[in-house]
């Protein structure tokens, strides 16, 4: 049997893994459940990417082109994974979709990514109740369609609030981890809003600002210094609505005292959770999950893509919240681990 690999998930991580493995001459099948490639970047039409303000559509075009034009990569979209068996030869995987068939492979890369936290699960933010309360992903879609407007009446917002850590760092909703990118993504989005709306009042409600590493000055400081965005330290307890405007109830912990301030548009920085696919396929391939429900990296000090099961590798946000650049890097890390694994397997 030839050296064949199945990569599951056509987001940044999976696309990069499939392209790299194909470039090294391995026989790759990339399986994506939706009909578009590009993962969250394509599904929510991110136009401008954090941290470098590069183009989202250009990234998707490049990553997707690299697999579509690769003679060693077969791309299967609108398909899902059925039964999985393992024997001496490797994995036998039933593919379900419009052309069901069996795939054989010696190694599998799980790149099944994340789902956005659904803020309906945390009633205090009024999401789903008040039209002017939207998620960060919905703001990306709004950027893609045209200028930023209030969903309730189509008017230009005079004031915009971002609420941090929605669905993250919160025992009440069951997610005790930090989603890592939402601080920086919110800062990026505030800079974009400022470009469109020179007069709008933009306020960020945060508990900590985690624009870690090189993003501190390029995103956090820039949003304050160049875009005139104000940061208010305090977590929001409730969003209500008065006279057609969402009202944020919070405490400004620096001046010590509660406030109730109205805004025209409220953006929830909703966090990342293990995707349905990540949960399902970790069961099918019997890989361990870490305590937050992401795929456990069994030896991150050796290689980030190793799982509890030999032959099954993980890349991207399936193993925890991370940025696109890290997801892409892990696509390569997984490719390397797959090649090392296949080499030792052939020798044995």
């Amino acid at each position: 049997m030839s050296n064949s690999v199945i990569v599951i998930g056509g987001g940044p991580a999976g696309l990069q893994a499939a392209a790299t493995l194909g470039n090294f001459g391995l026989d790759v099948t990339l399986v994506e459940q939706h009909d578009v490639l590009g993962g969250a970047v394509a599904q929510h039409q991110y136009q401008v990417l954090m941290p470098d303000f590069s183009s989202g559509p250009a990234l998707v075009a490049r990553l997707a082109g690299a697999v579509q034009n690769n003679p060693h990569v077969t791309v299967v979209t609108s398909a899902s994974i059925g039964a999985v068996e393992e024997d001496q030869e490797g994995f036998r995987v039933q593919l379900e979709g419009s052309h069901p068939h069996e795939l054989q492979a010696q190694a599998v890369v799980l790149a099944t990514g994340f789902d956005h936290f659904d803020p309906r699960r945390d009633g205090k933010y009024g999401y789903g109740l008040f039209p002017d309360v939207i998620t960060g992903a919905e703001l990306e879609e709004m950027f893609a369609k045209g200028p930023v407007r209030r969903p309730s009446n189509g008017e230009v917002p005079q004031s915009v609030a971002f609420i941090y850590c929605v669905g993250s760092r919160d025992r009440q909703v069951g997610n005790t981890y930090c989603s890592r990118v939402c601080c920086a993504v919110s800062a990026k989005q505030s800079i974009e809003i400022r470009e469109q709306l020179p007069k709008a009042r933009i306020s960020m409600f945060y508990m900590d600002v985690r624009t870690y590493g090189l993003w501190e000055d390029t995103l956090y400081w820039r949003s304050q210094e160049e875009s005139g965005v104000v940061y208010v330290k305090g977590r929001i307890a409730e969003v209500t609505q008065k006279a057609g405007q969402p009202v944020l109830k919070g405490e400004d912990t620096l001046v010590r005292g509660p406030f109730e301030w109205p805004f025209d548009l409220v953006v929830l920085a909703a966090g990342m959770e293990p995707s349905q696919g990540t949960r399902l396929l970790s069961q099918k391939f019997h890989v361990d999950l870490e305590p937050h429900g992401f795929v456990q990296q069994s030896e991150p000090m050796r290689n980030a893509s190793l799982t509890s099961r030999p032959g099954v590798f993980v890349a991207g946000s399936a193993s925890g919240p991370k940025a696109i650049e890290d997801a892409i890097a892990e696509g390569d890390v997984a490719s390397l681990a797959v090649m090392q694994y296949l080499k030792t397997k052939v020798v044995v």
């Binding site: 508990m207 977590r235 929001i236 307890a237 409730e238 109830k249 919070g250 912990t253 509660p258």
Partner: peptide, 24 residues
């Protein structure tokens, strides 16, 4: 406690009585 302020933000009394602040 990580001093996030959500308790005071939602507190029945903090909104009425100056100086009452559970986080504080």
């Amino acid at each position: 406690c990580i001093q996030c302020g959500m308790c005071t933000a939602g507190c029945t009394v903090a909104h009425e009585v100056p100086g009452f602040n559970p986080r504080q």
